[in-house]
Nucleic acid binder design. Structure first.
Lengths: 181, 181
DNA sequence: AGCTTATAGTTAGCCACCTAATCATGTCAA
DNA sequence: TTGACATGATTAGGTGGCTAACTATAAGCT
């Protein structure tokens, strides 16, 4: 039993074709080829879009982690939050958040202030530079998302949301033995 | 212009709701809320499934990278390939493949043999232990994929494949300025 | 033959993620 | 009020990505 650690997604460039999957299906009879292909395609599309988003953000010296932190701060009325709250909302460990904040601080996009009431807490506030960075990045981001989603009609987008939601509800299948019949 | 490096997907736990997106839409008028939400959900589902797959594989001391290498080798008639061919098919750099192969070698799941014709080449062959590992992992993998995809009917699965394909064709939107109108 | 260029693989060093351990501060109950 | 436990943040150490630089071998020209 190993420790599972990384959120790194394999960039599945070479999804097996039906013939190859059939070879596996012979060895492993439970295989449903169509299901596997759909699953792998879902992973691949997600991975490629994530990679693409990163490559866009990198033009502005950001990656998804630090960019998302700025977005979370922008949502707050006073542009402030704490490391643990940010870690929770971003879905990363507090240790990772410390690292992300280190990077943002280095680029002066945020500031760290020690809490007054609870001296364990640190208050993170987005700086004017941070806001400027976001103002630089976001228009192009929205433009590209729109461009991407133009591949689908309004109806298809609704459909996709609905299908994703159904799959999302099953997401614990890999983790939790009890979900198997 | 920074260097873009990681295939790490942000685990977007906290997708903004319509109200928050509206706030951003006020600041950034090009925002199409529905498109953004669909995009973020696609990223999130991909990320969560990838994470789940990793957590399953970790029970067998594998992660997606090393697991995928074993699958690629299993496809080959003689269970053999070269590091560069594997890197190409797995969609990772040759340097990363070196690292993955190091790990597989440590666990004796593959063997390295120096090429005869071209002495620069190394031949990677899956060992009996490697095949046994895959035979251990794959049934549960297929079982879980089937379980996951039971969320969708046959028709819905076909629909999803079609929608994903349409989006996939637009995947260069983030990387290539010329795709913007 | 001997240069130059291309190719296969590894190494070095960076980044973002993780868990576990640590340190400081708060809280609560005997 | 003090000892046990909880909580916020950081540090240490490991993994798997990346690019760039390096070594060794091969191939192609002149």
């Amino acid at each position: 039993m190993a420790n599972y650690k990384l959120a790194i997604m394999l960039q599945v460039k070479d999804i097996p074709n039906a013939e190859i999957l059939q070879k596996f299906a012979d060895r492993y009879p439970q295989t449903d080829i169509k299901n596997v292909m759909t699953f792998l395609n879902l992973l691949r599309v997600g991975s490629d879009l994530s990679l693409g988003l990163n490559s866009y953000l990198a033009e502005y010296d950001l990656l998804q982690g630090r960019w998302w932190v700025l977005l979370l701060l922008m949502r707050e009325d006073n542009l402030s939050s704490t490391p643990s709250a940010l870690a929770e909302k971003a879905g990363v460990s507090r240790a990772t958040m410390t690292g992300l904040l280190d990077g943002l601080l280095r680029d002066k996009l945020i500031s760290r202030v020690h809490g007054k009431r609870d001296r364990r807490q640190i208050l993170i506030r987005m700086t004017v530079l941070g806001q400027a960075k976001l103002d630089e990045v976001m228009p192009g981001y929205y433009q590209r998302v729109n461009q991407l989603m133009q591949a689908l009609s309004e109806t298809e987008t609704t459909q996709l949301m609905s299908l994703l939601k159904k799959i999302y509800q099953q997401r614990h299948v890999f983790e939790d033995e009890s979900h198997l019949k």
